[in-house]
Computed example of a mutant assay.
Amino acid sequence: MQAVFASWQFWALSSAVFAALTAILAKVGVEGIDSDLATFFRTIIVAGALAILLALTGKFSGEQSMTRRAMLFLTLSGLATGASWLCYFRALSIGEAAQVAPVDKLSVVLVAVLGVLLLGERLSAYGWLGVALVTSGGILIAWRG
């Protein structure tokens, strides 16, 4: 069982399940309130939950020092996350969750392309086929025809 918890596949699939729940729960939660306020409230909950988790696991201890480079890129990542959440909640307040979430998940395609262009990662022919299929799927689900 420990091998399951040590695998990236377990955590990635868990992330997908929680992301799906996020979309459905947020769609219901954003009804009747400003999407930016909803994003702010959710962010407070996320930060609080993480603070509790870090405190309970002793990870606030400072044993791991962060480099300036790490702090810079984590700050930029945090800003990108905030912008993503603001856009996502705005889209959910206007559109249907079954359309908004697949378009949002086109980030998978962007990560693959940016990983190749900026990080030097490589995709096989099957990987590129997957990128094309995810793109097609996202567009087909979101398109009202």
Rank of each mutant, 00 (worst) to 15 (best):
S15T: 15
A16Y: 14
A16H: 13
A16I: 13
V17K: 10
F18R: 13
F18T: 15
A19S: 14
L21M: 13
T22H: 15
A23K: 13
A23W: 15
A26F: 12
A26L: 15
K27R: 11
K27F: 12
K27Y: 13
V28H: 14
V28R: 14
G29M: 11
V30Q: 12
E31T: 14
D34L: 03
S35I: 08
S35C: 02
S35Y: 13
S35V: 05
S35D: 09
D36K: 05
L37P: 09
A38W: 13
T39D: 03
F40Y: 12
F40L: 06
F40V: 09
F41A: 12
R42N: 06
T43E: 09
I45P: 00
I45H: 03
V46F: 06
V46Y: 06
A47P: 04
A47T: 01
G48Y: 10
G48W: 07
G48S: 07
L50Q: 00
A51L: 00
A51D: 00
I52C: 03
I52Q: 02
I52H: 02
I52G: 02
L53H: 07
L53P: 01
L54S: 01
L54T: 00
L54I: 01
L54V: 00
L54N: 00
L54F: 06
A55S: 07
T57Q: 02
T57W: 00
G58S: 06
K59Q: 08
F60A: 03
F60Q: 05
F60T: 05
F60G: 08
S61F: 05
G62L: 06
G62K: 10
E63Y: 10
E63D: 09
Q64S: 11
Q64M: 10
Q64K: 12
Q64W: 12
S65N: 04
M66I: 07
M66L: 14
M66K: 04
M66C: 07
M66N: 04
T67N: 06
R68H: 02
R69D: 02
R69S: 10
M71V: 05
M71T: 05
L72C: 11
L72R: 09
L72D: 11
F73L: 04
L74S: 12
L74I: 08
T75C: 09
T75K: 04
L76Q: 03
S77Q: 04
S77C: 08
G78K: 10
